[in-house]
Design a protein around this nucleic acid. Structure first.
Length: 605
RNA sequence: GGGGAGUUAGUUCAGCUGGUUAGAACGCCGGCCUGUCACGCCGGAGGUCAGGGGUUCAAGUCCCCUACUCCUCGCCA
């Protein structure tokens, strides 16, 4: 007379909660067979659910029938058991939370058998990502992924609670909107009802949330999916989630305070870590100079030193023609010091050179500093003047035994190469772990960036963020005369070298807006065409407003120490944007295409 | 679009300067086992060496192309 699990006998506990104080209780557990140890006589299984593991023992003396059935159990069978919690006596398993007890089973039912899984369901990942993504539902059974996904759920919960407490309304915006130029490439959705026309999937709710401010909702937030058809990276997915918010009647500092409070709460509740606030602030220009990008990892030094002016001052006479040439061509020169106590072998430096060449560098200049400050192992040592050498040594604060690395040429290239080199070296030298925080959380606001960037290809100024960012008042005179000098109320929040989020105070003055468009070379007509509805909206008493969006996926990735963004997304895409489990994107038949008035012309092989 | 790494049993890997029948561990199947917790012992099955082409007396190994996965520059907040 087997018990009827589920319909009559309900689960009493999870596999992670039984302990010595439950000894003697009659319990029912449901879960998966995580491991089995069959001694012929006694059969042990570790039963797993999302909360943990509990050892279950089947003995012929307790129930011959149940024990026999237990002998047929295999890994990942889904089962229910009933039995009594007993002490393990002195045979405690200290590795398990439930290791003081075990359940002596009287009843067992096999809900479903399992074929041998294509890879083992265990904590350690040593299966190719390809296999893991193909059988994502099995990969998600693994404890580290379960922890990430559960942490993500809690982060969502905490965010909603916090923002609601702070007067924010959770409002929804359309995914399918009108294509607007600029920014990321959009995914397009053909319209069956409007032949030849397309929706664009929202790359962010940017414009809608500003319209909410115009409507007077005052404080908006949304945990929202965004879509961008760009190349992927370790920390980028084509669809990703943002904690998006917008506030009326605020300064930059007001936005910072809300975000700092949210992050503080998330870190406290999820990790028990006290994050000090306010976060430090750093000027964009300073970040570029010292770290080569606008998302510096402040957990370690290896800062850059800009030598451009120094090289220019010494000119041709300095004896380093390559560097001088770079400066003459409007390039820059940067250096970085590898301290003497972290020596690199010749082979290792050669490898670094290969590494930087992969990013577009022509090479990697180096100089080893000896006791008297002279340079060895350096292509510059023969020709450089002692004066310039001394000046550089001083500028980079080089000590005997240090290795100076140089990079010079086009500004963007030098920054990129040096920024990546800095992080690469930090990992190599053991200053930071390969991934994860190492328990160190360095938050930072990067502020006061330029409003415009010069697009070399288009030979024109383009908006660095978007065209609705408010310039600093004292920059207004340069809007037309010297656009590169215009700073703006834009900000990024950075954690350990990752951009967690960014936003801006928006432009709500139509006059200044018109000036910005002019600087961008956008005609009134063009502006009207592209952003007409927003420009119109700003005419009807739009409040001053600003906002920010945090990358939820990245936030959880950093919070949980995950190696990749893919580990905190339940069903992620590969680097080519495919889903190895479902096979998306897939082909559709001719009839479906005709229905939406689309003709497909893939490139010939 | 560019650069780099990789692809060998179900899984993780080994396979040297090209040379007989491609190995190991785990998993799987069969048998034994009442205190294991990486259980143990005995036996067994399991391979399109990613795909295609080439060089060679002979290719997992050398060359070329393609596909896929990952990292990265460009791109993208």
């Amino acid at each position: 007379m087997a018990v009827r699990f589920i319909s009559e006998v309900k689960r009493t506990h999870t596999c992670g909660e039984l302990s010595a104080k439950d000894i003697g209780k009659e319990v029912v557990l449901f879960g998966w067979v995580h491991n089995r140890r069959d001694h012929g006589g006694a059969v042990f299984i570790d039963l797993r659910d999302r909360e943990g593991l509990t050892q279950v023992v089947f003995e012929p003396g307790i129930s011959k029938e149940t024990h026999e059935l237990a002998g047929s159990l295999r890994l990942e069978y889904c089962v229910g058991i009933q039995g009594k919690v007993v002490s393990r006596g002195h045979q405690v398993n200290p590795k398990l939370k439930t290791g003081e007890i075990e359940v002596r089973a009287t009843e067992l039912t096999i809900f479903n058998r399992s074929e041998p899984t294509p890879f083992p369901i265990e904590d350690r990942i040593d299966t190719s990502e390809e296999k893991r993504l193909q059988y994502r539902y099995l990969d998600l059974r693994r404890a580290p992924l379960q922890r990430s996904i559960i942490a993500r759920s809690r982060a969502n919960q905490i965010t909603r609670t916090y923002l609601t407490e702070h007067g924010f309304l959770e409002l929804e915006t359309p995914f399918m909107g009108k294509y607007t130029p600029g920014g990321a490439r959009n995914f397009l959705v053909p319209s069956r009802l409007n032949p030849g026309k397309f929706y664009a999937l929202a790359e962010s709710p940017q414009l809608y949330k500003q319209l909410f401010m115009v409507s007077g909702f005052d404080r908006y937030f949304q945990i929202v999916r965004c879509f961008r058809d760009e190349d992927l990276r370790l920390d980028r997915q084509p669809e990703f989630t943002q904690i998006d918010l917008e506030m009326s009647f605020v300064s930059q500092e007001d936005v910072f305070a809300v975000i700092e409070g949210l992050i503080q709460r998330l870190w406290k509740e999820l990790l028990g870590v006290d994050v000090p606030i306010p976060f430090p602030r750093m000027d964009y220009d300073e970040s570029m100079a010292r770290y080569g990008n606008d998302k510096p990892d402040l957990r370690f030094g290896l800062e850059h030193v800009v030598l451009t002016d120094l090289i220019a001052r010494h000119g041709e006479a300095g004896g380093v023609p390559l560097m001088y040439e770079a400066v003459k061509n409007k390039g820059i020169v940067k250096a970085m010091v590898i301290p003497a106590d972290k020596p690199l072998s010749r082979a290792e430096t050669d490898k670094l050179e290969e590494y930087v060449k992969g990013m577009g560098a022509a090479g990697l200049g180096r100089a080893k500093v000896n006791e008297s400050g002279e340079w060895t192992q350096s292509p510059f040592s023969k020709t450089i003047t002692p004066a310039l050498r001394t000046a550089i040594n001083e500028a980079v604060k080089a000590k005997p035994g240090d290795l100076i690395l140089f990079q010079f040429g086009r500004e963007a290239m030098v920054h990129t190469v040096m920024a990546n080199l800095r992080v690469h070296l930090a990992k190599k030298l053991g200053l930071i772990p390969e991934y994860g925080s190492g328990g160190v959380w360095k938050f930072l606001w990067v502020v006061n960036p330029p409003l415009f960037e010069y697009d070399e290809d288009a030979k024109a100024w383009v908006a660095a963020h978007h065209a609705f960012t408010r310039p600093h008042d004292d920059s207004l005179p340069y809007l037309e005369s010297d656009p590169g000098r215009v700073k703006c109320w834009r900000y990024d929040v950075v954690l350990n070298g990752f951009e967690l989020g960014g936003g801006s105070i928006r432009l709500h003055d139509p006059k200044v807006q018109a000036q910005v468009f002019r600087a961008l070379g956008i005609s009134d007509e063009e502006a009207r065409n592209k952003f007409g509805f927003l420009l119109d909206a700003l005419k009807y008493g739009a409040p001053p407003h600003g906002g920010i969006a945090l990358g939820m996926d990245r936030l959880v990735m950093l919070l949980t120490g995950a190696e990749s963004l893919r580990d905190v997304v339940a069903f992620p895409k590969t680097q080519k944007g495919t889903d190895l489990m479902t096979g998306a994107p897939g082909e559709v038949d001719e009839r479906q295409l005709r229905e939406v008035y689309v003709k497909s012309t893939p490139p010939a092989k």
